[in-house]
Amino acid sequence: MKIALTGASGLVGRFLLRGLASRGHEVVALGRRPANGAEWRGWQLGETAPLDGCDALVHAAFSHLPGRYRGGEGDDSEGFLRLNRDGSLRLFKEAQAVGLGRIVFLSSRAVYGDYPPGTELTEDLPPRPDTLYGEMKWAVEQELSALAGPGFATASLRATGVYGPGPDHKWRGLFETFLANKPVAPRVATELHGDDLAAAVALLLEASEASLAPRSFNASDIRLDRRDLLERVARIAGQGGALPERADASRVSAMRCDRLRELGWRPRDMEGLDAALREML
């Protein structure tokens, strides 16, 4: 399958590119800069997309302030929505018009929003976003779902925080702080290896059209306390600073991923974390 991938050079997109290519798909990277291992076509959100010759689209591009997702609009909420919400809808309609058969959109757990801490986030819970980021992702999900029909399958993947090896991985600053024996604040969060996210995207691209009927799919794996994470870092690196206090895990709302698991998706769980950490360190 020839797949157009937006955001291929980003923190998450690089996992998607590698994962799709490793499964034999031909990837066309749409973005502002080239991505290693793929044909590159210059494009950015809001522009007409060069989709000719492609069979499917994976949309992972996202315009935001550097390093910020929730709150990534800064002081320009209108511009944020124009690029991310309206630009995405334009992209989807263009894909439909040129005859692509399938779209997978990278959404976020932020669509669940203000459920009480500790709520089990199942895929049948109505979204209740409480940030502009979550509202935007939920709006795009609905717009995409409305386009679906025979021969044009769509799916939105509600991903949690993504970790994995790379020169600019998400924990780089945290590890540097810890290894320099500086204080680290307690925190616990849900995490997903980028390669497992790529496997989920590949499943949604390759599954039958009927199996995508739910339209939205949760993608999450481990609940990880910083104390446990940094204990592993210290063991692997042979050094480390003071460990933070353990955070209150009962206040973390974990996502159930029943729909992906029904398709055969199996993330690596805690067993895969040490291998990833060795690469990151």
Rank of each mutant, 00 (worst) to 15 (best):
S77E: 15
R109T: 09
D86G: 06
T119K: 04
T131K: 05
L106Q: 09
G42H: 14
S108D: 12
D86T: 12
Y69S: 13
Y115M: 02
V58C: 12
D114I: 00
P50W: 13
F92Q: 05
D130I: 00
V104W: 09
P127H: 08
P129V: 11
P127G: 09
R102P: 06
E135D: 01
D75R: 15
W43D: 07
R41S: 12
A110R: 02
P116W: 00
F80P: 02
G67H: 11
E78S: 13
P66T: 10
F80R: 05
N84M: 02
K93A: 10
E47N: 06
P127N: 10
G118Q: 09
L57Y: 04
Y133M: 05
G87Y: 08
E78R: 14
R109M: 13
L125E: 07
F105R: 03
D76C: 01
P129D: 08
P126S: 14
V98G: 05
D76R: 06
L100W: 07
V111N: 09
R82E: 04
R68A: 13
E94M: 00
L65N: 00
G74C: 08
G71K: 13
T122N: 04
R85E: 14
A49T: 03
V58P: 11
E123P: 03
G87P: 07
A49G: 10
L89A: 11
G42R: 15
T119S: 15
E135Q: 15
L106S: 13
F62E: 00
H59M: 09
D75Y: 00
N84R: 04
V58F: 12
Q96T: 02
W43I: 06
L57K: 02
R41K: 15
I103W: 07
Q96Y: 02
C54D: 03
L51D: 05
D130G: 14
L65S: 09
H59E: 02
H64N: 13
F62I: 05
W43P: 07
R128S: 12
Y69C: 13
R128G: 02
D86I: 03
E135G: 01
F105P: 01
